[in-house]
Every structure is written in structure tokens, then in C-alpha cells.
């Protein structure tokens, strides 16, 4: 009896997972992002340490109720335009993740160069168990131009 039941239970467990995995469209437009070069990751990390780490923490886990985490959020993995604008314009009280909001303000960081923003966002999108396509300086440049 027992022997027969276990595989059935397993199937019942796995079926929704498999179906879910098949139907769910990955948020990232390009799921098979090319591996990011170490040089870009190193540069991005440096920008992160100086400009983001205090609030979002070394492991991207954020601070409960104050600063959101950066792990697989729709901002990190989603539209590059929204993401770049988050860095250039900052925000307060706009982010909600799993019903939680955050009391601190994120300052706008327009003083970062297009290259620095591209590097740090590529780093974030490929750290803290995130996987998403690179952001290029050219993309940042055109998004910045539209804001002005």
C-alpha cells in the first residue's frame, strides 16, 4: 500500500510545479543571458559597495521595514527603464513587496555615470541569486535622456 502511494503523492506534488514552471513566463525578457564578464561584475560590485550597500546590505537582503531587498524583485528583474529610473530619480513609499512597504527614502543618484549605473545594475541583476541580462551604458544613456 505504502509503496504505491508515495509515487502518487510525489506526482501530485510535482505536477503543479512542472505545470507552473511551464506556464509561468520568466519576468526577464532574455532568460538565457550570456555570462557576465568578471570585469563588469567587479566594477559593478565596487559601485554597489560605495552607493547601495549601506541600505540594501551586502547580500541584497535589505532592512526590514526600512529598505527593500533586491532578491528577484520585479524592479531588479523587470523593465530596465523602470530600474534605471529608480536609480536616477529615487523614490519613497512607492515600493511594495509581498505586502510590505518601506519607510526610508531612496535618494536619486544621477551623479553616477551611465557606465557606473550599467555596471551596478548588471551586478545586482546577476547577484543575490538573481539572473538577468546585462544593462549597457548606452541603454542607461537613452533612458537618462528621456527623463531630462
Amino acid at each position: 500500500m505504502k509503496k504505491n502511494v508515495l509515487p502518487v503523492i510525489m506526482f501530485l506534488f510535482l505536477a503543479p510545479v512542472i505545470l507552473h514552471a511551464q506556464t509561468k513566463k520568466p519576468i526577464s525578457p532574455k532568460p538565457k543571458a550570456a555570462p557576465v564578464s568578471k570585469a563588469v561584475m567587479d566594477r559593478g560590485k565596487e559601485v554597489y559597495l560605495m552607493n547601495c550597500l549601506a541600505c540594501h546590505q551586502a547580500d541584497g537582503s535589505g532592512v526590514p521595514n526600512l529598505n527593500p531587498h533586491l532578491v528577484k524583485t520585479k524592479w531588479v528583474l523587470g523593465s530596465k527603464t523602470v530600474l534605471v529610473e529608480q536609480i536616477l530619480k529615487g523614490s519613497q513609499g512607492k515600493v511594495e513587496i509581498d505586502g510590505e512597504t518601506f519607510n526610508n527614502a531612496m535618494p536619486p543618484l544621477p551623479q553616477l555615470t551611465d557606465q557606473q549605473i550599467a555596471d551596478v545594475l548588471t551586478y545586482v541583476r546577476n547577484s543575490f541569486s538573481n539572473k538577468a541580462s546585462v544593462v549597457s551604458a548606452g541603454e542607461v544613456k537613452s533612458i537618462r535622456a528621456k527623463i531630462k
Binding site: Q57, A58, D59, S61, V63, H69
Partner: peptide, 8 residues
Amino acid sequence: ENISSPGQ
């Protein structure tokens, strides 16, 4: 011990 981020 050695807590690196308050969420932990």
C-alpha cells in the same frame, strides 16, 4: 552570532 544584515 556574526550577523551581517538585520533581516537575519
